[in-house]
Amino acid sequence: MRFVLLCLSLTLSATPSWSQESIGLAAPAEVKDSGLLQHILPRFSLKTGIRVIADDAGVMVLETAPPGDPVFARNDVIYHLRIEDNDRQTRFLEWLKSDIGKRTVESFAPADGGPYSASFDIAVVESGDIVEGDTQLGEELSMTHCGRCHVIGPRNRMNGLGSTPSFAVLRAMPDWSQRFEAFFALNPHPAFTQIDGLTPPFDPERPSPIHPVEITLDDLDAILAFVSRIDAADLGAPLKLQ
């Protein structure tokens, strides 16, 4: 009987003490569908006793662009983890960036598509090019209004028009900020763009040919903040601008 109790005591002492409340992690559909979260989250929980679950309303958010810390990549897309000021969330981020966390990510073999990598290069963005603002709002506005024609990022990489440059290509241009700040005056945007308090109303005899883009100057600032943090496309030879 004493032997059984001793074994039970040793077993309990070797088992992580599970936190009462789980932490939700929101992730893009392509990450959830790949099965990566089902692979790494139980392993982290077993190691630390901190339970992390996939949850679209989670307080931790995995995104395809900053803000957040880059944690892994797949098919040239770098995923960033945004967390709150919380010890358990920080523990998860540090685990992902540790050697064992990286090995756990890279040991996952997706049924479809390429593997995940925890070793990648981040394009250096000059600090002077960073625009302060609500980058999350800027991304959503870009997807809603600009994603009809431009590829904004991985979320709509198959939806842009071939005749329009992606945001990553525009970001690689030395005058990218001027282009975005004055986009509403550059063809074909004037025909369907209205910025509150800045652009004149459409001529009643020449209405917008498509559903108009209607934003405010604050919205434009948010878009600029988002674009300033996009990794510029590697276009090889220097660009010849017209």
Results as ranks from 00 to 15, higher is better:
residue 163 S to H: 10
residue 65 A to P: 11
residue 182 A to T: 08
residue 26 A to V: 13
residue 122 I to Y: 01
residue 230 I to T: 11
residue 20 Q to A: 13
residue 19 S to F: 01
residue 215 I to R: 14
residue 224 L to E: 04
residue 146 C to G: 06
residue 10 L to Q: 02
residue 95 W to I: 09
residue 232 A to V: 01
residue 63 E to F: 06
residue 154 P to E: 08
residue 192 F to A: 01
residue 226 F to Y: 09
residue 38 Q to G: 15
residue 111 A to I: 11
residue 14 A to M: 14
residue 13 S to K: 07
residue 72 F to P: 05
residue 118 A to P: 03
residue 211 H to F: 06
residue 160 G to H: 05
residue 196 D to L: 14
residue 240 K to P: 03
residue 200 P to C: 10
residue 29 A to I: 11
residue 208 S to F: 06
residue 35 G to H: 02
residue 83 I to P: 03
residue 154 P to C: 07
residue 189 H to T: 10
residue 47 K to H: 04
residue 109 A to K: 10
residue 209 P to M: 14
residue 85 D to P: 02
residue 213 V to S: 04
residue 134 D to P: 00
residue 215 I to Q: 15
residue 112 D to C: 00
residue 173 M to E: 14
residue 36 L to A: 01
residue 137 L to D: 02
residue 181 E to F: 04
residue 44 F to W: 00
residue 76 D to Y: 13
residue 133 G to Q: 08
residue 190 P to E: 06
residue 134 D to V: 02
residue 183 F to T: 04
residue 24 G to H: 07
residue 130 I to W: 01
residue 62 L to W: 10
residue 239 L to T: 13
residue 41 L to M: 07
residue 42 P to G: 08
residue 104 T to D: 10
residue 27 A to R: 15
residue 68 G to S: 12
residue 47 K to P: 03
residue 215 I to P: 15
residue 140 E to D: 09
residue 94 E to N: 13
residue 72 F to K: 01
residue 212 P to R: 13
residue 184 F to E: 12
residue 201 P to F: 00
residue 6 L to Y: 02
residue 183 F to E: 03
residue 154 P to R: 14
residue 42 P to E: 02
residue 20 Q to W: 14
residue 191 A to E: 10
residue 37 L to M: 06
residue 223 I to P: 14
residue 171 R to K: 09
residue 3 F to A: 02
residue 37 L to H: 05
residue 105 V to K: 06
residue 115 P to C: 08
residue 164 T to M: 07
residue 121 D to V: 15
residue 112 D to N: 05
residue 173 M to Q: 08
residue 142 S to R: 04
residue 124 V to K: 14
residue 49 G to A: 03
